[in-house]
Every structure is written in structure tokens, then in C-alpha cells.
């Protein structure tokens, strides 16, 4: 899901940075100091998840775990994603520093939206099937929304706007299903072992 350096136009890069700076500022203001260790832990998991390869037929991709991140962190998801992506760019050469703003927005905004749309429903759901269904939907939604935003950034640079969005959405369907399944099992596990992390 990382957009590489040298692809986006200047205007798109500025738009990405503007969105990310706004999100990071909002996140830092509203992050509960008591939850900083939890934020660091979740950011580390996201940072490391990019190293886990998932084979899908002849191709392969890597996990993002953005949906669990959004559900657990809420407002703090922007700073957490930003730090993890910064370190991924510096240490693993994923994405890049100039495109960091666009990548942060494309990944953190869907996670924040997931928190807003599904967060409360997942936390308050009681039945196992209902929780898993909601979590699966959250995981799928996050990946597809991220692909949609990344596609929009690429489309803003390329003339073939709809083509770029369509291509990214199709390419991310298998990852969305995998992330949905992983999110479903992860949320069930968290509800049983660490229910306070979802509050």
C-alpha cells in the first residue's frame, strides 16, 4: 500500500502532507497520556507487520493491521502510523520521506474512519458471531478505503483518474479479505485476553 517516491505530483504531495499534519496535530492533542505505551505497542506491531509476507496465488503482499490499530487507538492513530511509516521509510526503504505525508494520510485516515464507524459497535457487541462479522467488515473496509485514497492520490497525478482508483481497488480485494479475517480473530482474542484495550 506504500506509494513510492517520485510518482506523485507536487500538488498531491502537498495535499497529503496537509491532511497528515492536521491528523497528527489532532491526534497529539487528543491522545490520552495513559495510553501512550499502548500507542507505542500498536505502532510497533504496524511497523513490523509490513515484514510479514502473505502469498495470494502467484503474487504476495504484506499485512497492514490498520483496522485493529484504528479500533484500539482511535484519535492517536495518525501519530502512531506516521512514526511507523517514517521508520519503515528510513530503515526498510518502504515508500519514502517526501511521500510520507500522502502515505500517512492514505493509511491513517481509513483507520480513524474505522474507529468512528465500527469502534463502538465492536466494543459493545456481545455475541461472538456478531463481533467477528463487525470486525471482518472493519478490516475489509479499512483496506479498501486506503486503496481508494491511494488511488485518488495516483489519479490526481495521472490523467486516468478512474483507471488508477479501479486498478488499486481490484488489486487490494484479496488483501482486504485477509485483513478482515485477521481483524476478526484478533478482536475476539483481545476481547477475551485484554478487553480493556478495546475501551
Amino acid at each position: 500500500m506504500h506509494i513510492s517516491e517520485g510518482i506523485l505530483s507536487g500538488g498531491t504531495l502537498i495535499a497529503g502532507w496537509a491532511g497528515s499534519v492536521a491528523g497528527i496535530s489532532y491526534g497529539l492533542k487528543h491522545t490520552d497520556p495513559e495510553k501512550i505505551v499502548r500507542t507505542a505497542f500498536t505502532s510497533s506491531v504496524f511497523f513490523l507487520a509490513s515484514l510479514v509476507n502473505v502469498r495470494i496465488g502467484p503474487s504476495s503482499t504484506h499485512l497492514t493491521l490498520l483496522a485493529p490499530m484504528g479500533i484500539i487507538l482511535g484519535d492517536a492513530v495518525f501519530p502512531a502510523v506516521f512514526v511507523a511509516l517514517l521508520l519503515q521509510a528510513v530503515l526498510f526503504h518502504f515508500g519514502g520521506l517526501v511521500v510520507l505525508g500522502a502515505n500517512t494520510f492514505a493509511m491513517a485516515f481509513p483507520a480513524l474512519m474505522t474507529h468512528v464507524i465500527f469502534g463502538r459497535a465492536i466494543c459493545e457487541s456481545s455475541g461472538k458471531f456478531r463481533t467477528m462479522t463487525l470486525s471482518f467488515m472493519a478490516g475489509t473496509f479499512t483496506v479498501m478505503a486506503g486503496a481508494c485514497i491511494a488511488g485518488t492520490f495516483l489519479g490526481m497525478t495521472d490523467k486516468n483518474f478512474l483507471g488508477a482508483v479501479k486498478l488499486l481497488l481490484i488489486a487490494h480485494v484479496p488483501l482486504a479479505v485477509i485483513e478482515g479475517v485477521v481483524t476478526a480473530f484478533l478482536v475476539i482474542w483481545l476481547k477475551r485476553v485484554m478487553p480493556e484495550s478495546l475501551q
Partner: peptide, 29 residues
């Protein structure tokens, strides 16, 4: 060749990244 790290170098970089994240968190705390 491009500088995609692997093996032990990848492990050390991953460890460094996690360490940096927790250090930032401790400073803020």
C-alpha cells in the same frame, strides 16, 4: 543492488525501529 535489507540486518533494523518507537513514547510520557 538496491538496499532492501534481509537476514540479520533486517532483524537488527526491525529491533532498532521498535526501540525508537518506545523511546519516543517514553519521552512523551
Amino acid at each position: 543492488e538496491s538496499s532492501i535489507p534481509n537476514g540479520m540486518e533486517l532483524f537488527i533494523r526491525a529491533l532498532l525501529g521498535v526501540s525508537v518507537i518506545f523511546n519516543i513514547a517514553m519521552i512523551i510520557r
